[in-house]
Design a protein around this nucleic acid. Structure first.
Lengths: 127, 127
DNA sequence: CTAAAGGGTAGAGTAAGCTCTAAGGTCAAG
DNA sequence: CTTGACCTTAGAGCTTACTCTACCCTTTAG
């Protein structure tokens, strides 16, 4: 598939796709006689994975290392397992912290709702 | 407290502290006769909160809006409660997605460990 | 009084991650 | 054979979030 199709199917700007390739996030991009890029079907999934991981706050470098490790045909298993374990620990830690934030936001929300109620009954907001 | 102490207690560079102030993240920074900044004790907590939220992938803009809403003495309760609800929904969504990533990493880790074991027993890595 | 330590502003520089422009090659339709 | 759509690269420009530099003023210790 050519770049326009990949752009359209992933919603990622073609300039960004070429940038990702330059940064080592997209492997196996072959070229035809005309020098046009020819992406395999799997590129759609891969690009989608990149943008999802990005939305979760991973840097392109982290995503590259992770995805390339998952390709794994070329990697040392022991080392790969360790990388996965490290990444998983970091993600799990982030989940714990986000849960803390979520709890805090829930409390504030309830407090503000109670104040709004009090306000409707003629009293002041907050405290 | 002066900027050196806040820098030392939060671990945040003084240039960054001034930048945060310029971006509206630190309110209530008063000035003495000498024009030096004088931070209240609460600034330590506030700056720490900023850097924690940053580590969770929030932008300075989001953090500013959130923290300023939490100050709340000046805000409309109904509206504040809604902002909290929105932010909480976004955080909860992020938690769900990260859990998905964590699961995936766990699977890959187990797969690679199994392959490493097989490898030690004389067979090929992966598949 | 003077030197060192610390404060101030303005603005330049940096890195990541895009996003766009310029100049040019390719290709299918009319 | 030209027009228009689509491709290429190189490189400029933008945003966010710092980080640092230059230059000057204030405070504190000897």
């Amino acid at each position: 598939m050519r770049i326009a199709e990949l752009e359209q199917r992933t919603g990622i700007n073609r300039h960004t796709l070429r940038y990702y390739e330059k940064e080592g996030l997209l492997l196996e991009v072959i070229r035809g006689d005309n020098n046009y890029r020819d992406y395999p079907e799997k590129a759609v999934e891969r690009v989608t994975m990149v943008s999802q991981l990005k939305a979760l706050g991973f840097s392109l470098r982290e995503i590259r290392d992770l995805l390339n490790a998952l390709r794994s045909d070329s990697m040392d298993c022991e080392q790969g397992a360790q990388l996965m374990a490290e990444k998983k620990a970091a993600v799990d830690q982030r989940i714990r912290e986000l849960k803390q934030v979520s709890r805090m936001l829930g409390e504030q929300q309830r407090r503000l709702e109670a104040s709004a109620e009090a306000q409707r009954n003629g009293r002041d907001c907050i405290r």
